[in-house]
């Protein structure tokens, strides 16, 4: 499972990039939690571009603000005033609460570290949630979710409850859930942190082969250095800033039969 990595330094922003290439454009993004003595500045003016057709990794020491930044991009956390958050061509900072809710529903896929599957629902039902939220009828949504699960080697597990699945299998259900409504941006926070090395590797292979598409950006927060080589672009964060961005050519020698 060795990969050939040729890393190159790159700038965090690319003002020249054509608008349809840029999935996320952040300028001077700040986020402060609390006030007075309790005040924590998590983001200190982030300037950063995330591109379509790529898998972008966001790395950095614990507490540097990765999750906060991801939440701002995904529209589940409001940045401070004055921040420019442009996602998929839309000004997220200017959206109302319900506009953000609709935006997330239609355009964003989520993968969480703790999977966050609903324990009472089967794999297919869990994977179908984004479609249900969009208003699809239940049988149609579950049929579509089962297809996606089949695509990532989970055809046998569609009717299993999360408690009957291994951690890797649960994360695959979560990936199916993030893909099922074909969002234009997929955000993942530490998707491999709860998995052993082998399973984490397979999950990343899955992402590369199924999730990355020319019209979609995949953004993954991780501190697992064993998966760094999967990214097309790796941004390093420290103390509320993006401090370094590298591009690299990641080739996976592993054939995608791990999906089976």
């Amino acid at each position: 499972m060795s990969s050939v990595v040729e890393a190159q330094r790159a700038s965090a922003v690319d003002a020249q990039a054509s608008p349809d290439r840029v999935a996320v454009r952040l300028r001077n993004v700040r986020k402060t939690f609390g006030s007075g003595d309790q005040k924590v500045v998590a983001l200190r003016g982030v300037d950063w571009d995330v591109f379509n057709g790529q898998m972008t990794l966001l790395i950095g020491p614990s507490g540097c603000g990765k999750t906060t930044l991801l939440s701002v991009i995904a529209g589940i956390l409001d940045a401070d005033r004055g921040s420019q958050v442009c996602v998929l061509g839309r000004d997220v900072a200017a959206m109302s609460g319900s506009q953000k809710t609709r935006f997330r529903r239609d355009s964003i896929g989520f993968v969480f570290q703790q999977y966050n599957l609903l324990p009472a629902l089967t794999a297919a039902e869990n994977a179908a949630i984004p479609l249900i939220v969009k208003g699809w009828p239940r049988p149609k949504a579950i049929a579509r979710a089962s297809e996606v699960l089949g695509l990532i080697g989970m055809a046998q597990k569609v009717n299993k409850l999360p408690s009957e699945l291994s951690g890797g299998q649960q994360q695959r259900v979560a990936i199916a859930r993030a893909l099922v409504h074909e969002p234009r941006l997929i955000v993942c926070d530490e998707p491999t942190a709860a998995l052993d090395h082998e399973t984490g590797h397979q999950v990343m292979v899955l992402f590369r082969t199924v999730a990355v598409r020319p019209d979609r950006a995949v953004l993954i927060v991780t501190h697992d250095n064993r998966v760094f080589h999967f990214g097309d672009r790796v941004a390093r964060m420290d103390d509320g800033h993006i401090v370094e961005v590298r591009t690299q050519k990641a080739t996976i020698e592993e054939p995608p039969d791990v999906l089976a």
């Binding site: 989520f110 324990p119 949630i129």
Partner: peptide, 15 residues
């Protein structure tokens, strides 16, 4: 947490 996930995935407060 489950409700939070549903909210993140775009389920409205009303629902």
């Amino acid at each position: 947490k489950q409700f939070g996930a549903l909210k993140a995935m775009g389920m409205s407060n009303l629902r």
